[in-house]
């Protein structure tokens, strides 16, 4: 038992060290000029996409509920934050904007999730698809969102450090949730909904909980997007955007948080790199996706996590051989 406890604590320390080192490394690359302003945009995209992918992964990869409208939640967060910071361009306004965006998203999540997630089957996919379209159309027609032209000159209150803090916090919160009894309840639903329910799990409650937590963080990602890129229009949050997020999740591995992180980073780097091939860009991008999925249909990570224990397991596969040789 004591042994288990020490591993548990060690893994937490490792996580923290890893997070701090990642930050310092990127900061160092910025300082010495390897990551230029141009690439900082990519960096911001990666952070925002990690939050989006990880929150969608909770719903689709871990709980097994297909959602096709993640961009809709992102839009709610983005517009809420933009409108509030335009009215109140202070740090307090920005924090209010993020909070309002996330909470509004979560409320819409409850409204969409409750009626559809009671039912078994893929009703959620259809409902979320419709929801995201409705949100986009509403934002195209409202005065306060300035219609199809969108909002400009949104005050920027965040830099890369802020984005990193938000991304790390999201990762820690969702990873902690998954490693709790509540998270296991969600995973049980993905594995076998009937068995989960028979073992005392209120499956509706946990499907809705996962969906609402997912919506909340998609709202946060949208708010960060608005503040960093200071320009919004409804078409940014179209169906293609929802698919982009789903692609990151599938490519990284359904049910793997580190997979989503890798997926977000790799895809953002590939598309940044492809910017110079303007015409054939999308063709090459699609080809790369197809090739990756051909070689790893379960995604880069499958449902595994990149962790210390994975390295230990790999090492333990080698060790016995060494032992035999010695004896």
């Amino acid at each position: 038992m004591r042994e288990m406890k020490s591993i548990f604590k060690a893994s937490n320390v490792v996580k923290l060290v890893f997070i701090v080192l990642t930050y310092l490394l990127v900061q160092f690359l910025i300082n010495i000029g390897i990551i230029t302003d141009y690439y900082q945009t990519t960096l911001a995209t990666i952070c925002i996409n990690i939050i989006l992918a990880v929150s969608l992964n909770l719903v689709t990869g871990f709980t097994g509920q297909f959602s096709l409208g993640h961009a809709g939640f992102m839009a709610i967060g983005a517009y809420a934050c933009a409108i509030i910071t335009l009215k109140n361009p202070t740090y307090a306004g920005f924090i209010q904007g993020v909070a309002a965006g996330a909470i509004l998203s979560a409320i819409v999540g409850v409204a969409v999730g409750l009626p559809t997630l009671r039912l078994r089957g893929d009703y959620l996919a259809i409902a979320t698809l419709g929801m995201a379209e409705i949100i986009r159309i509403i934002f195209t027609n409202l005065k306060i969102t300035n219609g199809a032209a969108g909002l400009q000159g949104i005050p920027r209150f965040i830099n890369w450090t802020w984005l990193f803090v938000f991304t790390a916090a999201t990762l820690i919160i969702i990873s902690n949730f998954i490693k709790s009894s509540h998270g296991r309840a969600c995973i049980a639903i993905r594995e076998d909904e009937i068995a989960a329910e028979a073992m005392g799990i209120n499956t509706t409650k946990y499907k809705v909980a996962a969906f609402v937590i997912g919506a909340f963080f998609a709202g946060v990602a949208g708010a960060l997007y608005a503040s960093y890129f200071y320009f919004l229009k409804p078409n940014i949050f179209n169906f293609a955007k929802s698919v982009d997020i789903l692609v990151i999740v599938v490519l990284g591995g359904m049910g793997s948080l580190t997979g989503s992180v890798l997926g977000a980073a790799i895809l953002a780097l590939i598309s940044t790199f492809l910017q110079r091939f303007s015409e054939v860009r999308m063709i090459i991008y699609s080809l790369i996706l197809i090739i990756i999925m051909l070689f790893r249909p379960q995604g880069i990570m499958g449902s595994r996590e990149l962790s210390l224990s994975l390295f230990k397991r790999a090492a333990s596969k080698i060790e016995p051989k060494v032992g035999k040789e010695r004896s």
């Binding site: 709790s180 009894s181 296991r184 309840a185 995973i187 594995e191 076998d192 009937i194 028979a198 073992m199």
Partner: peptide, 22 residues
């Protein structure tokens, strides 16, 4: 109808969820 892709321990832990105190 086990939770096939989960460990033996997780299968049992999941069934204890209903009495969880946090």
């Amino acid at each position: 109808r086990l939770f096939k892709n989960l460990t033996v321990l997780d299968n049992v832990r999941i069934a204890m969820h209903k009495d969880i105190q946090y």
